[in-house]
């Protein structure tokens, strides 16, 4: 696995990948979205990808604002439909490396259908789900990943709906690379993104993220740092440790790391083959 390139003497130069005139970004103080983006930019650097060969596509939400800050080809589309726009673009220009920035609301609620069919087709793109268990942008409504019992503006007495497991959903729908990371484990996330960027086919990375302003405040987490600490201490367990730990240490925790990786025919390539076969008949 590629190791972090960060050298002590030279801090990583994020600015070369950013639209500096758009900073400071709109995310609230301590919002995890910026930390996720930083891990992604280091992974892109590890893979030595050129900015012109990248295209970042998003839907609507705080997380979906990411393309506004990166100096790649970018497309900010409509709620839940980043996958569909990206599919069209990828078919038209298969050389582009597609990265989708989406939220738990954008990908799992309004975009759920587009998400599963993108996974089913195994079209070559990296889907990053910024998973903060809330609709941040619209003021803190519960989402399809909000845990049972959590408070949201639409569940004042506690959420009664069981949440989706995004990774299980991606795998079941046919994604060929599925992983989970967190905004706390920044270097592990960088390594996961680096691997995901090297994968051919649909790669889904769910990132356990924090919305201190809505989820945090409503659920008695005092601030951004406390939310980070909770991610570290209570939320997740590494895939490398999960089998070694006693059941009571892993119960109710989400597993981090690369959870599923297989090779299957990629959609654009299959389509191209068909066109060539028919055209040369």
């Amino acid at each position: 696995m590629a190791v972090a390139k960060q050298k002590l003497s030279v801090p990583f130069d994020y600015d070369k990948y950013l639209r500096k005139d758009k900073l400071p970004h709109i995310w609230c103080p301590g919002c995890g979205h910026g930390i996720v983006l930083k891990s992604l930019l280091r992974a892109i650097d590890n893979k030595e990808l050129s900015k012109n060969d990248l295209c970042m596509v998003s839907g609507i939400g705080c997380s979906s604002r990411t393309p506004g800050y990166v100096d790649f080809n970018t497309l900010h589309t409509i709620h839940g439909r980043a996958f569909s726009f990206a599919t069209g673009l990828k078919l038209a220009k298969p050389s582009l490396k597609m990265i989708i920035a989406t939220g738990d609301g954008d990908a799992m609620a309004i975009g759920g259908n587009h998400f599963i069919h993108t996974c089913r087709r195994n079209i070559d793109m990296l889907i990053i789900v910024y998973s903060n268990a809330i609709y941040g942008m619209t003021g803190g409504q519960f989402s399809p990943t909000t845990p049972i019992g959590s408070i949201a503006t639409t569940s004042r007495y506690g959420n009664v709906e069981p949440p989706f497991d995004i990774c299980e959903m991606a795998k079941a729908a046919g994604a060929t690379f599925v992983a989970r990371g967190t905004a706390y484990h920044t270097q592990e996330l960088e390594r996961t993104f680096t691997e995901a960027l090297g994968h051919k086919g649909t790669a889904v990375v769910e990132v356990i993220d924090s919305c201190p302003i809505y989820f945090g405040r409503m659920n008695k987490q005092r601030g951004a740092s406390e939310m980070m600490e909770n991610i570290e201490k209570n939320g997740t367990v590494s895939v490398k440790q999960v089998d070694k730990l006693p059941a009571e240490k892993t119960e109710g925790k989400l597993v981090r790391g690369i959870l599923h990786r297989v090779e299957k025919p990629e959609y654009c390539e299959q389509y191209d083959k068909l066109i060539v076969a028919k055209a040369t008949k």
Partner: peptide
């Protein structure tokens, strides 16, 4: 570098 790794604001 932990401060840099976790600063959400490139600051």
């Amino acid at each position: 570098q932990l401060c840099d790794l976790r600063c959400p604001d490139f600051a």
